[in-house]
Design a protein around this nucleic acid. Structure first.
Lengths: 150, 150
DNA sequence: AAAGATTGAAGAGTCAATCTTG
DNA sequence: CAAGATTGACTCTTCAATCTTT
């Protein structure tokens, strides 16, 4: 509780917050300008696409998207209302649901990726050469490992 | 519109989003567990403290916190309702307001910093030696520069 | 009782419109 | 009309409570 971070660590923290907000705002803004829904919708569609069967249980989505149960539930609500996913009963576990990607969802995902991809390049990629991008990814990776001292 | 980012850039983007969310969640969670309000309150109090006179106009806060006008307005609403800042008339410009730090606000800022600081160390600092923290800060700095090709 | 999932109500962010002053 | 700031309505997130099934 009393450990003090170095000045370098404080600066890294502050810039992590600021750089992420700026990059995310810029990318979301590009998607919106192209008439697309928020990135969170894409994230959901992509996870469903990635999993082979194109369907997942909310509890699995929860872990992959770093969202809480109720937020997953409401994200699915919105995306389902627009017809990009559907909810089905889960036969193995009566408590559970299955969320499945629709054809429209798959098409939206692909269309968004074209805009998303160029937004990543414009707002992130263009600032780094490959070596720097790798270094950045490696350093950020250290924050993603869930290792925390008890 | 058609430039493709490298794989390294895509990975850096994805990890920037994930690492920031994990770090912010962890730090906010520590502040909350200690009974404190959200980080956005601290950001506002700190800007007022930093500016010498301890008062700023909302339009200045807007630029420093990367928030939009209406969001600044509502942040000030909440923080003022709790007594940590006060709004005053701006004499030079009848359209404007002045937001001033109260004693309670100053005290809250200092109390929060103790918890905030150790949270930064626990969730960010401890993962890096000084050299890595500096490298990370430098790389993230490239995303903060507002340079965008027209 | 624990796990999966949803819901109502409150908190915070966003959009468009508004009000006041320069 | 433009700039500073606020407001109403809507969306999204968060909290606590709830419901169902294991």
């Amino acid at each position: 509780m009393n450990d003090k971070p170095s000045d370098a660590a404080i600066l890294a923290w502050a810039r992590l917050m600021k750089a992420q907000r700026m990059a995310l705002n810029a990318v979301e803004s590009d998607l919106k300008a192209a008439g697309f829904p928020p990135l969170s919708w894409y994230d959901l569609l992509l996870e469903l696409h990635r999993c082979g069967s194109r369907e997942l249980r909310p509890v699995e989505i929860e872990g992959r998207l770093l969202l809480e149960q109720h937020n997953v539930s409401r994200l699915i609500d919105r995306v389902e209302r627009s017809g990009y996913v559907v909810r089905r009963r889960c036969k193995e576990d009566g408590r559970g649901q299955l969320v499945a990607l629709t054809e429209e969802g798959h098409a939206l995902m692909q269309a968004m990726w074209l805009v998303y991809r160029s937004a990543i390049e414009r707002h992130v990629g263009r600032h780094f050469d490959d070596k720097d991008a790798e270094t950045l990814a490696t350093l950020l990776g250290k924050l993603i490992t869930p290792a925390v001292t008890p």
